[in-house]
Design a binder for these strands. Structure first.
Lengths: 323, 323
DNA sequence: GGCAATTACGTAAGTGCTAACGTAATGCGG
DNA sequence: CCGCATTACGTTAGCACTTACGTAATTGCC
């Protein structure tokens, strides 16, 4: 599912969707078993049933909704004959909600239905159901204690100040090497077997033969990567350049490129080339600015089906340096 | 919070509430940081940004909503100038949604904001955030694979057939002894120190002095309990009778009572009494039917402040047997 | 090639909730 | 006891989403 790839960014959407599924399931169970109530009524009715008559605000606070919601729902329940409103004799502002006999009878017969729901949820969700309940509980508390908006804005402020940083390969970043590249590969092309080999086993396929891998970090977030492959003695290939789309425009690509070129020089290489695809206009432009020159033909014996562009590093003295 | 006491029964409500909190947080962050988009727009816009132009149905499937929702949202985004609709030249039914330049620019600048949201969520929720994401993912899959309604209805059918079963005390049921009694105690009265001692340490306070504890089970669910306390040689007290309100009317109370009386006889007791409160009408009626006789005074030296009823077991030969 | 079934979509109506507002009753300090 | 702040609540308007329905275009099948 697409939403899951967004992880924290789409939490609201996913929780809403999950919520709706549970509501719908409960409604169907109530309908099939002839309970005569709806899932949305349940929290209010159950609360009144357990605690006895209560004011609108009390109910609202207990079930975590606004007084308006409770008031409107009370109207509907009253119309259905399940609930009665009456004024509080002691306080004219308040309106006491109490179940009618019919309301009590509706709930009294639901014991087995509720037990069935509890058990059915456990059958279907198994251990995940408990995990979900616990996680929800923990998150509710965490949100109360540590307001999330402040945290995000604080992070935002520091991120805006912080600069992109280039770091060499570390084993614990291996998965990022795969993820960052898999993203654009699957978007524009397909992952070829050679890609899979390099991305899954970078130590063996890149580092061991004499290549290098770099990552771009912004704060704690890994936002890009690129690889320098050792193709033959003195011959290197620039490859696997990927920057998270959410972080385009911060100059991470150019910094990665500069780091790879510097490493190429440090190792005393004499030829640096790359293969790409003509549809990746912004990337090609960046390569040109860094000193790569477009070749009239594709590379003989190219490794990749998608490669229709072949460039060789041949900087003029005035090649634009990284910003 | 009241809702958490309902556990599986109110999952929908709680997830909805949590969802709203995340939406509200995201909206505030976007507003403060001047992003110019709303949280509800995010899934659609991000999808179009990553995958390029797409049809209404494609988008709807990706983000897990109906085509109507996407269509209506597309109207609003088009009105805001962030998105353009155009017909698919190849298929006249379809309408292609594509971000405008303005839309792309809106998203392009959000890299740091999204990173901040990811980090801020982690700051605030810590490990719980990951747990929540994983649990949601797992539950989504579980619901797809094992339709929850069928499970619930299956359980419902077997529960309706199954009978209430009385079992003796086991250590793993200890918490139920506390929970079932604490529920009605806090509802109608308060938990007195003596209650707390008995409920927390039933082995020491009830079993060791020569008493007994019974539980009523319906399938796997523990729905009621009661205790037979050894007060003095040959003298027993019936106490701590509690049945989950959701399971009233199944006869569990009477079965528990019969089990306790049988145990009283088995141990060769000569006096069985109970203390209760006059407000618990249905319970008092049940005690009478079982052979308890109301005494004119409260018990001398009663243990409980709430006790204003004193009954002694004195069955006539024709005492109503359990149904 | 013709016709039914399917697909893709827009629109209308309804639901469940919120925010915002108005009003009446209550509490409180002087 | 008066005036003002607070509270409790109902009402209205609006939002996000759904279901239901209608329509046009496409597909599939003989």
């Amino acid at each position: 599912m697409y939403l899951s790839s967004l992880s924290e960014l789409a939490l609201g959407s996913r929780l809403k969707a999950l919520s709706d599924r549970f509501y719908a399931a409960a409604d169907e169970v109530y309908r099939v078993s002839g309970a005569g109530i709806e899932s949305r009524w349940f929290p209010v009715m159950r609360f009144l049933w357990e605690r006895g008559p209560a004011t609108v605000t009390e109910v609202a606070a207990a079930i975590g909704q606004t007084h308006s919601a409770v008031s409107q729902l009370a109207d509907r329940l009253a119309r259905a004959g399940l609930l009665k409103r009456r004024g509080d004799p002691g306080d004219g502002r308040r309106s006491l909600l109490a179940l009618t006999d019919k309301g009590c009878r509706s709930l009294a017969g639901l014991g087995t239905t509720w037990a069935a729901i509890r058990q059915g949820v456990r059958d279907s969700l198994g251990h995940e159901g408990e995990n979900l309940l616990q996680a929800v509980q923990a998150c509710e508390r965490a949100l109360d204690e540590r307001p999330i908006v402040e945290r995000i804005l604080a992070r935002h402020a520091t991120l805006k100040r912080s600069k992109v940083e280039i770091v060499p390969f570390e084993p614990r970043l291996r998965e990022h090497f795969h993820a960052l590249n898999a993203h654009w590969l699957t978007k524009h092309f397909v992952i070829e077997p050679l890609d899979e080999k390099v991305l899954r086993h970078p130590e063996q396929a890149v580092l061991a033969p004499g290549g290098a891998i770099f990552f771009a970090r912004l704060g704690e977030v890994v936002i890009g990567t690129c690889a320098l492959l050792h193709e033959a003695p003195g011959v290197y290939e620039l490859s696997k350049m990927g920057v998270d789309e959410a972080f385009r425009g911060l100059g991470a690509g150019r910094l990665l490129l500069d780091a790879a070129i510097a490493e190429f020089h440090r190792r005393g290489g004499h030829t640096l080339f790359l293969e790409s695809n003509s549809s990746l206009k912004p990337a090609l432009h960046m390569y040109e600015r860094a000193g790569f020159v477009l070749q009239p033909t594709i590379r003989p014996g190219s490794h990749y089906a998608r490669a229709d562009v072949y460039m060789i590093y041949a900087p003029k003295k005035s090649a634009t340096p990284g910003r």
